[in-house]
């Protein structure tokens, strides 16, 4: 093993936590739950709750810009809301704007550099829009141009050069690299099994996907052109969450219904650290600076976990 994981803190949100995002400095965490969005600082203190008061807005996914001046929240009831955050000394304030509406939003991905947001739908739909809400293209039954496959996971690379999409229909599925602005297909693979997560590995120019069949669960890393498998691993239990560090070749996975976290070498697939068990299914993971990890759990817990690499860092 080349590192270890340590739980720093638990925060209980009181309802299932489905999504989490961290800024690049890892000092805040935005968590999406059955109630809405909660932004916490590193000590677990609540800085912001959206929506306010008694109104509930169940959140499916949440992503943020590197500096956390913008948060993009995919609400389960069918919209993407942009929260423009402003920080004062002790508090956070926001301005909310709905930038996209559709009933069946499944996944979202952001390329802050290129100001693009990709949306994957539960149904047969994909879309890319600018971060101000202008739709660049959309494939959706509402437009009469539904995709063949459904349950789309999406991942934009940081530079916005490629959009990786993976479907999760039963049987054979599509994994493709698209030009985000035009939707033209740059590369593709047909995959046996449901692609349930897609994560772009920065710097290595690779893409990691989780693939499930009735009899197997695999984590597969493809080249950027999807023409070769760099490595793959099988798991006996489900991989319920997957995230990649923005700088270091590190993947973190939520494994099994007991909520185990595994740190994985993105180059080789080797487990670098494991053994931390959160006792609840991890719905999503986020990492910053290859060190700060936050897990959103089904039982409403938000776990702050440190990954401590064996390499010495001051």
């Amino acid at each position: 093993m080349s590192g270890r994981l340590e739980i720093r803190r638990f925060v209980n949100l009181g309802s299932a936590a489905h999504a989490v995002a961290l800024p690049s400095d890892g000092r805040l965490a935005a968590v999406g739950s059955e109630h809405g969005v909660t932004v916490l600082d590193a000590t677990g203190r609540e800085l912001l709750v959206y929506p306010p008061a008694d109104w509930h807005m169940p959140v499916r996914r949440i992503i943020g810009s590197a500096g956390f001046d913008q948060l993009y929240v995919a609400a389960r009831e069918g919209m993407v809301i942009r929260l423009a955050l402003e920080r004062s000394e002790e508090a956070l304030s926001y301005k909310a704007q709905t930038i996209y509406e559709a009933k069946d939003i499944h996944t979202i991905s952001l390329s802050a550099q290129s100001q693009l947001l990709a949306v994957g739908h539960l149904g047969p739909g994909l879309a890319v829009l600018r971060t101000d809400g202008e739709v660049l293209w959309r494939r959706h039954p509402d437009e009469g141009n539904a995709t063949e496959a459904r349950l789309w996971s999406v991942a934009l690379d940081a530079g916005g050069e490629y959009l990786y999409v993976g479907s999760a229909t039963s049987g054979t599925n599509r994994l493709a690299a698209l030009e985000p602005r035009s939707a033209s297909v740059c590369a593709y693979q047909y995959v046996e099994g449901m692609i349930t997560r897609v994560t772009v590995l920065p710097n290595t120019h690779a893409v990691a996907v989780t693939v499930n069949t009735p009899s197997s669960r695999r984590l597969v890393v493809y080249t950027a052109a999807l023409d070769d498998v760099i490595w793959e691993r099988s798991f006996d239990v489900p991989v319920t969450a997957l995230t990649a560090d923005a700088e270091q070749p590190l993947l973190f996975a939520g494994v099994g219904y007991g909520g185990e976290i595994a740190a994985i070498d993105a180059h080789t697939g080797r487990t670098l650290a494991s053994g931390v068990v959160l006792k609840s299914t991890i719905n999503e993971l986020a990492v910053a600076q290859a060190h700060t990890l936050v897990a959103a759990c089904q039982n409403g817990q938000v776990a702050f976990v440190d990954y401590i690499s064996q390499e010495f860092h001051l």
Binding site: E34, H56, P58, R60, A75, R76, E77, G78, K103, D104, H106, L122, G123, R150, L151, A168, M194, T196, R197, N212, R217, P238, V239, T240, T281, N283, Q298
Partner: peptide, 18 residues
Amino acid sequence: SRPGVTMDTIFGDIASEN
């Protein structure tokens, strides 16, 4: 169902094994 949950949501959650 809970707000925003459709059969597609259920299918998505099952597919991702959550």
